[in-house]
């Protein structure tokens, strides 16, 4: 089964092609100055051409679904939807944090992927390596770095930190002391190959894929919705 995967959740644009357990081709572009809209399809065209694969040969499309940059997520998922619809192939979505944690599976160790959510927030979730694979222990969260320190307090296991927001979480990492392991810089970037491997697993469980109305994992509401809810609870709160 040939899976084409896309990750544009962060400033990184990545496209990968995997067949079974084999990574056939992958490209990772980390050029924040240029938009995903301009880069993504040219990257995909190069990956396919490099692998000598025609787009019609692909059996399924996997997309990194978030959390991440709202616009980036829409470009990734919009591309996945367009491909799936035009090729009549199944689409699956993979949580971005699952994909970021995927490569660091050690039984007994925790994995803590960290993504910059901007405005003083990070996206994270906590995973533990089990015999069968990584088990997610928390929801997909939007936290302040201080709240992350609280999330990790009282844990005894080693913690593997990854993602582009490690630098924002210095205090949480420091408090983990000798139990903290930092993934090397080049390996902290989201990679579409992880999305592809997890996507293949999702497709084996659900061969039809997800409906094309699927939404990204935004995790956070839009500022307008938060303001409206605040206004409504301020004015209506007294009555009940």
């Amino acid at each position: 089964m040939l899976i084409l995967a896309v990750d544009t959740a962060t400033t990184v644009a990545s496209v990968a092609l995997v067949e079974g357990e084999r990574l056939v081709a992958e490209e990772v572009l980390n050029i924040p100055q240029r938009t995903h809209s301009e880069r993504l399809l040219p990257v995909m065209a190069r990956v396919l051409a490099g692998a000598g694969v025609e787009i019609e040969e692909v059996d399924g499309i996997a997309v990194s679904a978030g959390p991440g940059s709202f616009t980036g997520l829409r470009i990734g998922l919009g591309t996945g939807k367009g491909l799936a619809q035009a090729l009549d192939k199944p689409l699956v979505t993979v949580p971005t944090l699952d994909a970021l944690a995927y490569n660091y599976f050690f039984p007994g160790a925790l994995v803590c992927p960290l993504l910059d959510a901007k405005q003083g927030y990070i996206y994270t979730a906590l995973y533990r390596g089990e015999e069968a694979g990584l088990e997610r222990l928390t929801d997909y969260l939007a936290l302040t770095p201080a709240e992350l320190t609280g999330l990790l307090a009282g844990r005894e296991e080693p913690v593997i930190f990854s993602g582009d927001a490690i630098g924002l979480c210095g205090e949480a990492v420091a408090k983990t002391g000798a139990r903290a392991f930092l993934v090397p810089a080049a390996s902290r970037l989201p990679r579409a190959s992880s999305v592809a491997f997890l996507g293949r697993r999702a497709l084996e469980e659900n061969p039809g894929g997800v409906p094309l109305t699927v939404e990204p994992l935004y995790v956070r509401k839009s500022a307008a919705e938060i303001n409206l809810e605040k206004k409504e609870s301020d004015s209506g709160g007294g009555n009940g």
Partner: peptide
Amino acid sequence: TVAKAIAFA
């Protein structure tokens, strides 16, 4: 985005 993906595919 969607139009480009359809055109590409």
